[in-house]
Design a protein around this nucleic acid. Structure first.
Length: 587
DNA sequence: GCCGTTTTCGGCCCGACTGTTTTCAGTCG
């Protein structure tokens, strides 16, 4: 059972307990556990098997840790089964409808016998819902609207789609309200989550109402969810919700902190504020005795006042970071400017759009010191993969361009298929002549976990395979990752000295954050690569850096932050020496 | 149900918005 499934069960337990009218703090404890587990970088399944103490996780005590252990060991939870049995089958579906919480669902069930979505629709149609005290026609209309929305809109949107939409909306607001200041993306987009449920933005303005009105009046707004004095929420035809919050300028630091989340992180900060006799909200810190409000121009001030290090947005996951910040254990995370080279990209020799020379010039313009040209291997017929002969000419051109362009070190290379049986697309004597070999799975992605794990580990044992490309092959929101024993793969990577790629293409984001976290712990050399197929693709480094930061990576954990001379030294080494040497290089 | 550099018992995050209300409950993030 994975963390997502366990978190979902605790979330359901909280909902059912609330419907039953249990103590509010019991309910909150389950909600808190669910939200923490959702963001936990380590798989609980793995922790239980290794007999690690679950109670070290914040918000997990005796009762919940026992339930986790039961779920991992038996794929079932008796307590949950019994609890569910007290309620009709479809009640959890009804609770999923936005705007309907446990209280209302409980009433609908007891008073109108609503136990499914279709019951709910009937109760709205025949007017019985609107006739209940404290509900009404408007509430009924809103629920119906949400039901219709649920059918048309998908789930969370991949970051790759959300970021450009966010930028377009910001431009539109600036155009309509030139006086707007500090307009900033916050929320999950700022935290660089791989998918986002909505896009949060904030700004300061002398006339908040004008800014909110301009958002609500945008032509691609299909629904206004809320429109108050300081906050508005709209739904766009692009299929995503935008939340905009406006305050006076003096409050900007606290507002940005508040609106960047995540929720559990903010709760931990407010707990901390309470301990100090303060109360934290989006306007600042209030002294509970004197009722005096302290405001902050930037976020750093908020964290400092709470007696902790500044926490970068990517780490604000509400799990370990607040405790770490209080103990001065927040690392200096890797930044885009630390990246010295790109080690995976394509040209029009295989399935890239741009000529090799263009890609090299574009990389050089971005200030990088080295670049590996890694077009596809022969087996990728559909991607115009290179035959041995074409590969020879490809290498020749790389060498020529290195001389003629100058000022950037070029590596000959390939992105080579790992075939279904774990054999490789080029023979050892061909690979030996290449500077940099990326090996990737592109076929037979549906293999069972054992076969897939063996396949990848077999490729890692080849002395010429420098790095495994986009390990899980997932496409965010579109294609599921492969099934494999990732723990075993990470350990094999460290043992064989094979690097793992953080593929920065926003459609992939592969490795993902929790994988990065674990691979880093095991000392695996990590590479942030763009896998660019166009010159624009070279800009995607920021997504890869975002994932690395979410995995608590410093520059020293990323191989391509090495300066050229160090990277050349690394390449000279036998693979068996690389893991240890990498740790030494970057100590 | 969880938690403690004041606490093993007695606390537990905070505010905006909506729809229904003459003062607030429910939901959301």
């Amino acid at each position: 059972m994975n963390n997502g499934q366990i978190a979902e069960i605790f979330e359901s337990i909280a909902g059912l307990l609330e419907m039953r009218g249990d103590k509010v703090f019991t309910i909150r404890a389950y909600q808190k556990a669910a939200r923490t587990i959702e963001r936990l970088p380590t798989e609980l399944d793995h922790m239980v098997r290794e007999e690690q103490n679950l109670q070290e996780i914040p918000g997990i005590g005796k009762a919940i840790s026992e339930k986790i252990t039961e779920m991992v060991n038996t794929e079932n939870l008796v307590y949950y089964d019994k609890l569910k049995a007290e309620f009709p089958e479809g009640i959890l579906d009804v609770m999923q409808v936005p705007g309907l919480g446990p209280k209302t669902v409980g009433r609908l069930w007891k008073e109108l016998d609503v136990t499914s979505i279709s019951d709910l629709e009937k109760a709205i149609e025949n007017g019985s819902l609107a006739a209940l005290p404290r509900l009404g026609q408007k509430t009924a209309d809103n629920i119906l609207r949400q039901l219709q929305f649920q059918r048309t809109k998908g789930q969370r949107m991949p970051m790759a789609k959300a970021m450009p939409i966010a930028q377009r909306v910001m431009e539109a607001i600036r155009e309509k309200c030139p006086e707007v200041r500090n307009l900033t993306i916050a929320g999950s987009v700022r935290r660089m989550e791989e998918t986002v449920g909505d896009i949060d933005m904030l700004c300061t303005a002398d006339d908040p109402k004008a800014v909110l009105d301009s958002l609500v009046a945008m032509p691609n707004v299909v629904d206004v969810i809320g429109h108050g004095d300081t906050k508005a929420s709209v739904y766009l035809s692009d299929g995503i919700q935008i939340d905009l919050r406006v305050v006076e300028g003096t409050h900007f630091g606290a507002l940005l902190q508040y609106f960047s989340g995540n929720l559990q992180h903010n709760i931990q900060l407010r707990d901390r504020a309470n301990d100090l006799g303060l109360s934290l909200n989006e306007y600042g810190l209030t002294n509970k005795e004197t009722a005096e409000l302290e405001v902050f121009a930037d976020e750093e001030g908020v964290y400092q006042r709470l007696g902790m290090q500044y926490i970068p947005p990517e780490l604000r996951q509400g799990v370990w970071e607040v405790q770490a910040a209080r103990e001065n254990r927040i690392p200096t995370l890797v930044e885009i400017s630390d990246i010295r080279g790109d080690l995976h990209d394509h040209t029009d020799w295989s399935d890239g759009r741009d000529p090799m020379e263009t890609m090299i010039l574009s990389t050089k313009e971005r200030g990088l010191e080295y670049l590996a040209i890694t077009d596809h291997s022969v087996g990728r017929g559909i991607a115009n993969g290179l035959s041995i002969e074409r590969l020879e000419n490809h290498k020749k051109l790389v060498k020529e361009l290195e001389l003629s362009i100058g000022g950037i070190k070029l590596f000959t290379g390939t992105e080579m298929d790992i075939r279904a049986d774990g054999s490789l697309d080029y023979s050892d004597d061909v690979l030996e002549e290449l500077d940099w070999v990326v090996a990737s799975v592109h076929s037979a992605m549906g293999q069972d976990a054992e076969t897939m794990t063996d396949r990848i580990i077999k490729a890692m044992h080849n002395p010429h395979v420098d790095v495994i490309g986009h390990l899980t092959t997932r496409l965010v929101g579109e294609r599921q990752p492969i099934e494999a024993d990732f723990e075993a793969i990470f350990k094999a990577a460290a043992e064989t000295g094979t690097a793992l790629e953080i593929n920065a293409s926003p459609e992939r984001m592969d490795l993902k954050d929790s994988h990065v976290y674990r691979a880093r712990e095991l000392g695996v050399p990590l590479v942030i690569s763009t896998d660019a197929h166009t010159t624009e693709g070279l800009d995607n480094t920021r997504y890869g850096v975002g994932i690395a930061r979410r995995g608590w990576c410093e520059a020293k954990h990323i191989l391509n932050t090495l300066a050229l001379d160090e990277f050349l030294e690394f390449l000279e080494l036998d693979k068996s020496e690389r893991t240890e040497a990498f740790a030494r290089f970057t100590a």
